[in-house]
Design a protein around this nucleic acid. Structure first.
Lengths: 167, 167
DNA sequence: TATTGTTATACTCTATAACTATA
DNA sequence: TATAGTTATAGAGTATAACAATA
């Protein structure tokens, strides 16, 4: 880069080629950028498929955790999902109001709440699990099969790791 | 699963093992979940490193595109980055107010705006490019080197693809 | 009629501070 | 003093509808 003036050299790509592909520069090889675009694409499909049940990704993740860890403390659920405990309150309130999950008092500690799915929540989750299969299948196909998916998951997990200062 | 009552069988994992790792169930093998956690981890590092310059990922991406496509129409920049044109307005306003980029009227079309970096924007971007190198290097190391990164980028790009109904 | 940029607006997500009741 | 849950609040990010100017 020897050109010094900010405008005299290159006025507008538009003139040369109206439909030229946009050059993303550094972004093309940035992991963060690719991650963001991929996550948005996958979540867009999630939203389409779960719009009928009115379930968002965060709500789905809470239901999943409760199914596999019934009675887990609220603070542990939020920490496991990377949601601040303060933001977890309204998130769970919605599930509770909808009758999908509930808080129960813990015998040993009168401050704590143990979280459970209701039977309605279990039933809904059974349906959601079927829906998620179609969703996941779509992207497994895109990456090139189960083996490619396993490879991708392995690489993604290496990115997540420590970070210490989590919620 | 033969147990029918939603509460009699499993009261709380807490009792058996207070610090037991939380079982994420299906989430463990969901691409969307891993993508989300990885993206959050990478963006958290981005925020830490760019906090001093007060630059967010979206702002950085706009500056990059302008450097590589000076004079590009506003609508094309926003579309290239997947930002709705309506949300792009305040995003670019900030950059313009800070003197990093600017709108210029296009001769041929009096409705349109061509976007450019200012010299201050160019200068800032030079510094940002140095910062991003450290950021990217951290995650390249985490995934296991340049080869692993290339592999990961390839897999992520397969996830992005069509989607047709983009901004 | 369609496109470019804009305003207004609303909803979700995320972040911080501070409170309560317990421990 | 520390922890569990909560409230209030503010800031981003993202979504839709509608408008003016221009094509």
């Amino acid at each position: 880069m020897i050109v010094m003036d900010e405008t005299l050299n290159n006025t507008a790509d538009e003139i040369g080629d109206p439909d030229a592909a946009v050059d993303l520069g550094l972004l093309t090889n940035l992991l963060g950028y690719a991650l963001r675009r991929a996550q948005v694409a996958v979540f867009a499909d999630f939203h389409r498929r779960f719009a009928a049940e009115d379930i968002r990704p965060a709500q789905f993740s809470v239901l999943q955790v409760l199914r596999h860890n019934p009675g887990l403390r609220q603070a542990k659920v939020s920490a496991a999902l990377g949601v601040k405990r303060t933001n977890f309150v309204p998130l769970f309130d919605v599930l509770e109001t909808r009758g999908l999950a509930e808080r129960r008092k813990v015998p040993g500690d009168r401050r704590a709440s143990a979280l459970f799915l209701t039977s309605a929540g279990e039933a809904l989750l059974d349906r959601l699990d079927a829906t998620i299969a179609g969703h996941e299948g779509r992207f497994v196909a895109r990456v090139g099969g189960q083996e490619a998916k396993a490879q991708l998951l392995g690489l993604l997990r290496r990115l997540i790791e420590p970070d210490a200062d989590d919620t």
